[in-house]
Design a protein around this nucleic acid. Structure first.
Lengths: 141, 141
DNA sequence: CTGGGTGCAAAGGCTTTGCAGTGGT
DNA sequence: ACCACTGCAAAGCCTTTGCACCCAG
């Protein structure tokens, strides 16, 4: 599905700004912060405003077109929701690479919580550390 | 172990501010944001400054006396690291209650990452949703 | 044409930092 | 006495908001 169709399907207007935001996220191999996204959108569509980015991140998130990943030290990271389905991220503190992982802890936890009467709506699971490449650079065994 | 000993053991000076911060966190049944903590510390030790809180949250965190939990919409929550050991939180979006859970996804994931050459240093796992009490209030089945 | 969407500018909130002074050890 | 620690005030950063204009449907 292309970007225009994604937006229309969610009953959102197709504006150049939204197309730029989704294009950047689509092309990006890793997850992006709002500010990183903003800088990249500017290259694609100069003149785009801060607030447009923020407003649209909220909108696109609420329509389920994006995922949000809380960052280790404040702020959030965003990624486009691809068809591959639900996954989580292992993030290298050295190079910032975010490695997607299929494993989801909720598979184990869901039934336990159900017994308890708790209905989960969202969850976050991220792992931080060093990838093999960065371990070598930092000379960590 | 009492608070003074905790600080000394970490080679930190025992100041009234630090004692107040740890006391508040010790007494608190749920996790607190920096600002919530600040307000409560003020009652215990009026005149304490913002920056003292923030600086000490960093310090205490780096010495392993605290845990940090990324909040759903920006900011972090803090809790004192108790002896009970590692756990995670299920947080009710209705009443804010944070229910500790022993389950940790890293038990499953650790060996997979090791094969991959990735060394995890930190991880976050939180679940958000509605507890049974709040479901009734919100009239959600 | 009509409301959702955008740009602009300003405010807001939380957090960090520099500096001088204080207090723990 | 020394240096970690604190208070204060200011700056910093990211994010949100109000308002007028604009353009996609």
């Amino acid at each position: 599905m292309n970007i225009d169709e994604m937006l229309k399907q969610k009953q959102l207007k197709v504006t150049p700004q939204r197309k730029a935001i989704l294009t950047v996220l689509e092309r990006s191999e890793s997850v992006l912060s709002a500010q990183e996204l903003f800088r990249e959108v500017l290259e694609l569509l100069p003149g785009t405003n801060f607030s447009t980015i923020y407003r649209n991140l909220d909108t696109l998130l609420s329509r389920g077109l994006l995922c949000r990943i809380p960052r280790e030290n404040g702020g959030d990271l965003y990624e486009i929701r691809r068809e591959e389905g639900h996954h989580h991220h292992v993030i290298c503190k050295g190079c910032g690479a975010s490695i997607p992982v299929d494993f989801c802890p909720m598979e184990t936890l869901n039934c336990q919580l159900e017994e308890y009467g708790f209905t989960p709506t969202e969850h976050h699971f991220e792992v931080y550390g060093l990838c093999s490449k960065c371990k070598k650079q930092h000379r960590i065994p």
